[in-house]
């Protein structure tokens, strides 16, 4: 149960990261910063709306705002380096992550932002004789729902097909008249919005604070590597695995819980670099 909640949040962050990688072939090192931005924006919005029935809107709104920032960043910077060497892509997003997270600090200050009421008002229910927070259940449900929606969108709709076509072969898709540039922007919107909403969902039970970006980024790296870089299904399984490793690690071998996750990541990369659900890895 504990692992499930952590895994849900992780799934949302990681699926955004993996979507962007799958479509645009960019490993977005600024993803953690978008997650942090989502947390801060949500904290502000919830504070403004708290007590009104509109509070619920704060979450999707935060996601949209982060997504729009994502598009702006993509159009402004990342767009120019799709054709370039992967070195530049990593460096650019690395630089962007520094800029973004510092911009968050300058805009929102160094104090953590707390949101009260929401988490406590959701209350707790009894699970096997132990109380379990309802809010966690809501988040798990929501992550599941978003996961389903993503899957539906990717497999059933025209947009999804276009996105998948782009992911498979960029030049070919251009050849058959798809505006890949627009598709990439869309991928960035969805991807960063996913980071944004996961940041937002963390706020009521935690806080929007500086420093959560690096952790989110590296955890989702582990997830997508285990699941397979670029695979949405992989992100789901990967986050579940990490959630479980963490829950059991804390209970059974707390001393090396952190190291275990990295070790699993390294082993998966060594044994099966394409991840559990990734596309075939080509050793160039």
């Amino acid at each position: 149960m504990d692992g499930l909640f952590y895994g849900s949040i992780l799934y949302l962050v990681a699926s955004g990261l993996t979507l962007i990688f799958g479509v645009a072939n960019i490993l977005n090192l600024a993803h953690g910063a978008f997650y942090m931005l989502g947390a801060y924006v949500a904290a502000i919005l919830i504070k403004l709306m708290i007590g009104t029935p509109y509070t619920v809107i704060a979450f999707p709104l935060a996601a949209v705002i982060v997504g729009l920032t994502g598009i702006a960043i993509e159009r402004g910077f990342i767009k120019w380096i799709y054709e370039k060497d992967y070195t530049y892509q990593l460096l650019l997003t690395f630089g962007l992550s520094l800029v973004l997270s510092d911009a968050v600090r300058i805009t929102f200050g160094t104090e953590p932002m707390y949101v009260t009421k929401l988490y406590a008002h959701a209350g707790a229910i009894d699970v096997l004789g132990n109380p379990y927070p309802v809010y966690n259940l809501i988040v798990i449900g929501l992550a599941f729902l978003i996961g389903c929606l993503l899957w539906l969108m990717m497999s059933k709709t025209r947009v999804g097909k276009v996105i998948r076509a782009c992911a498979l072969d960029r030049e070919m898709s251009e050849g058959i008249g798809i505006n890949t540039s627009r598709v990439f922007a869309l991928a960035f919107f969805i991807g960063t919005a996913l980071a944004g909403i996961s940041g937002a969902l963390v706020v009521p039970q935690s806080a929007a604070m500086l420093g959560i970006d690096a952790d989110a980024l590296i955890q989702s790296f582990i997830v997508i590597v285990i699941g397979g870089v670029g695979s949405m299904k992989g992100a789901l399984i990967g986050s579940l695995i990490i959630g479980l490793i963490r829950a059991f690690g804390i209970a059974l071998f707390p001393e090396i819980e952190l190291a275990i996750a990295y070790l699993v990541m390294a082993i998966v990369l060594l044994v099966r670099p394409q991840g559990l659900f990734g596309r075939e890895y080509r050793a160039a």
């Binding site: 149960m1 966690n136 420093g211 804390i250 209970a251 707390p254």
Partner: peptide, 16 residues
Amino acid sequence: AWPPLFSTDYSAHISK
């Protein structure tokens, strides 16, 4: 239970 600094989820630690 030893969560790392700046964790956002303590549920597993609290349960333990």
